[in-house]
Simulated scan of single mutants.
Amino acid sequence: MTASHALVVSLRKAGTHLLKELMTGFGYSLHGEVSAAAEIQPKLRGDTLWRVLTMVYDEEELSRLTESKERAVVDAAIAEAVAAFYGAWRIRLGIPWRGPAEEAPSPELVARTLARTAARGFADTPEDVCWFLHQLDPHRADEGFLSEWLDTGNPRIVFNYRDPRDVLLSMVNFLSGESGRGVGHFTDHRVYRAILRNAGSFEERLTIALTDPCFPGADAFERGLWLLRHPAVCKVSFEELVGPRGGGSRQLQSAAVVRIADFLGTDGDPVQNPADLVDQLFNDQSYSFHRGRIGAWREHFTPEHEKLFEERYGTVLDAYGYR
Results as ranks from 00 to 15, higher is better:
250 R>S: 10
200 G>Q: 14
238 F>R: 04
149 W>D: 01
188 D>F: 12
213 P>I: 04
196 L>T: 04
142 D>C: 09
219 D>E: 13
145 F>H: 03
168 L>R: 03
141 A>Q: 00
223 R>G: 08
129 V>I: 15
129 V>T: 12
172 V>H: 00
134 H>E: 08
209 A>Q: 03
193 R>P: 01
145 F>A: 01
215 F>W: 06
143 E>K: 14
126 P>Q: 01
251 Q>C: 08
180 G>D: 03
178 E>L: 04
223 R>L: 15
220 A>R: 06
168 L>G: 03
185 H>D: 08
199 A>L: 15
194 A>T: 15
198 N>W: 08
174 F>G: 00
228 L>C: 09
222 E>P: 06
130 C>A: 14
176 S>M: 11
231 P>N: 09
184 G>H: 00
238 F>Q: 05
224 G>H: 04
138 P>Y: 06
237 S>Y: 12
197 R>P: 05
218 A>H: 10
141 A>T: 08
134 H>T: 13
225 L>G: 06
185 H>P: 05
125 T>G: 05
204 E>R: 12
190 R>A: 14
157 I>T: 09
215 F>G: 02
195 I>S: 09
177 G>D: 03
199 A>G: 14
220 A>K: 04
204 E>W: 07
148 E>Y: 11
186 F>G: 01
229 R>G: 09
178 E>H: 09
163 D>K: 09
136 L>P: 00
226 W>V: 15
142 D>W: 11
150 L>E: 14
166 D>R: 07
214 C>M: 10
209 A>G: 07
229 R>F: 06
209 A>C: 10
217 G>Y: 02
179 S>I: 02
205 R>Q: 15
169 L>D: 04
182 G>M: 09
168 L>P: 00
185 H>L: 04
173 N>T: 03
168 L>M: 14
187 T>M: 10
130 C>F: 00
168 L>F: 13
202 F>P: 06
224 G>F: 04
188 D>T: 12
210 L>V: 04
232 A>D: 11
140 R>T: 07
168 L>I: 15
183 V>Q: 02
230 H>P: 11
175 L>S: 10
180 G>K: 03
173 N>P: 02
192 Y>Q: 03
144 G>C: 09
245 R>S: 13
249 S>K: 13
240 E>H: 15
165 R>F: 08
215 F>E: 01
158 V>A: 03
214 C>E: 13
181 R>Y: 04
233 V>M: 14
186 F>N: 01
162 R>T: 10
199 A>Y: 07
165 R>W: 05
166 D>Q: 12
140 R>W: 01
237 S>V: 13
248 G>C: 05
230 H>S: 15
222 E>T: 13
132 F>I: 02
142 D>Y: 08
198 N>M: 10
193 R>M: 08
177 G>T: 03
149 W>P: 00
155 P>M: 07
167 V>C: 02
197 R>K: 15
206 L>R: 05
177 G>H: 01
251 Q>F: 11
247 G>C: 08
